[in-house]
Design a protein around this nucleic acid. Structure first.
Length: 307
DNA sequence: CACCCGTGGCA
DNA sequence: TTGCCAAGGGT
C-alpha cells in the first residue's frame, strides 16, 4: 500500500468546509424569502418579538392576521402593558396556547418597567423576560438587532440534521451536539450570521420541510448528507404524537372560548355547559385559574383576568 | 428530562 | 379519516 501524499494544510484564508453552505443558502434566501410583515423595517424589535411569541408552535398563515391586529392596537410594549392581561388573552383569539398571550403581556410590562419601554438588545436580558426562551432570545437579538446568534428552531434543526448529520429528523429534544453544530456553522461576520439565521429557517420552512422536502429546489442539495445517503427513513424513537380529543387541553380551550366571547363575567353554569364530565371540567377550570388565565369572582362568577 | 400547554390544515 | 405537524417555553 502506497503512502498517500500528505494533504497540504489549508492556508489560513481557506474557508472551513461549513462556509460552503453559507453563500448558496443566503443567495437562495435573497431570491425566495417571503415578504412577511415582521421582516419589514417598520416592524421594529417589538414587532419581531410579538411575531416570535405568536409563531411559537403556530403556523405563519394563522399568525398573519393576528399580528396585524396586535401591532395596530398595541404599537409599543407600553401600550400592551397598560391593558389588563385578560385583554391580551381575548385578543389572542384562537391562536392556541393562550399562556403565550399572558406571557407576552408580562414581557411587555417588564420591558416597560425595567427597560424604559424598549425591547432589550442584550441576549441575557431578553432571556430573562417571561415567555422568552433560548430560541426566542436568539431570534429577537438576530432578527431585530442583527446580532450573531445561533438561532435553533425546528426548521433549522431539521435542515442541519439532513444536510450535515444525514438524518431525516433531528432528535426529539435539542441536544448539546446540535447547539455545538449550530455555533460552528455560524458565519463569523455579524450581519452575515443574521442573514444565515433567517435563511436557514426559511429553507426549512419552504424547501426542507418535514413531510415531503423539495430537494429539487434546494440550494445545497449537492452537499446534503441525507440526500447523498439515499434519503434513509428516520430511525430511533418515534416522536410521540399529541392526542387532543378528550384531553384537559381541549376542555381548557372550550372553557376559555366562552370567557373570550363574553363581554363581562360569566356564571359557573355557562362554563359547565361546555363539558359533560364534572371532574375533568373542574380540573381544567382550576388549571386555568392557577395559570392566571381565568379570574374567579365571588358568587361563582368567572372572567378573564383584570390584573 | 418528560410532560403539559391549543388549534387547525393537510396528506 | 386520522395522525402529523406548526419560528417553543415552563416546570
Amino acid at each position: 500500500m502506497t503512502l498517500m501524499p500528505a494533504a497540504p494544510a489549508p492556508p489560513a484564508t481557506t474557508p472551513q468546509t461549513s462556509t460552503l453552505l453559507h453563500a448558496p443558502v443566503i443567495d437562495w434566501f435573497r431570491a425566495h424569502a417571503r415578504d412577511l410583515p415582521w421582516r419589514r423595517p417598520e416592524a421594529g424589535p417589538w414587532g419581531v418579538m410579538v411575531s416570535e411569541f405568536m409563531l411559537q408552535q403556530t403556523p405563519v398563515n394563522r399568525v398573519l392576521p393576528m399580528y396585524e391586529q396586535w401591532l395596530a392596537r398595541w404599537p409599543r410594549p407600553a401600550d400592551l402593558a397598560a391593558e389588563a392581561p385578560g385583554e391580551a388573552v381575548r385578543a389572542w383569539g384562537r391562536l392556541g396556547y393562550p399562556r403565550r398571550a399572558l406571557r407576552l403581556h408580562a414581557a411587555a410590562s417588564a420591558i416597560t418597567e425595567r427597560h424604559g419601554g424598549e425591547v432589550p438588545r442584550d441576549h441575557a436580558k431578553l432571556l430573562a423576560l417571561p415567555g422568552v426562551g433560548e430560541y426566542t432570545a436568539a431570534a429577537v437579538a438576530s432578527f431585530a438587532y442583527g446580532q450573531r446568534h445561533a438561532v435553533l428552531d425546528t426548521n433549522v434543526r431539521r435542515v442541519f440534521a439532513r444536510a450535515v448529520t444525514g438524518a431525516q429528523y433531528p432528535p426529539n429534544a435539542t441536544t448539546a451536539a446540535e447547539r455545538r453544530l449550530a455555533r460552528a456553522l455560524l458565519p463569523d461576520d455579524e450581519p452575515v450570521a443574521a442573514s444565515w439565521a433567517a435563511a436557514t429557517m426559511e429553507l426549512g420552512a419552504l424547501v426542507c420541510t418535514a413531510r415531503t422536502p423539495s430537494c429539487g429546489r434546494c440550494p445545497i442539495a449537492d452537499q446534503c448528507a441525507w440526500l447523498a445517503a439515499g434519503s434513509p427513513a428516520h430511525d430511533g424513537p418515534p416522536r410521540r404524537g399529541q392526542t387532543y380529543a378528550g384531553t384537559d387541553r381541549q376542555v381548557r380551550g372550550k372553557l376559555l372560548a366562552v370567557l373570550r366571547e363574553a363581554v363581562s363575567a360569566v356564571p359557573q353554569a355557562a362554563l359547565d355547559a361546555v363539558w359533560h364530565e364534572p371532574v375533568q371540567r373542574a380540573r381544567a377550570l382550576d388549571g386555568l385559574v392557577a395559570d392566571g388565565l381565568v379570574e374567579p369572582l365571588p358568587g361563582g362568577m368567572y372572567r378573564l383576568p383584570l390584573t
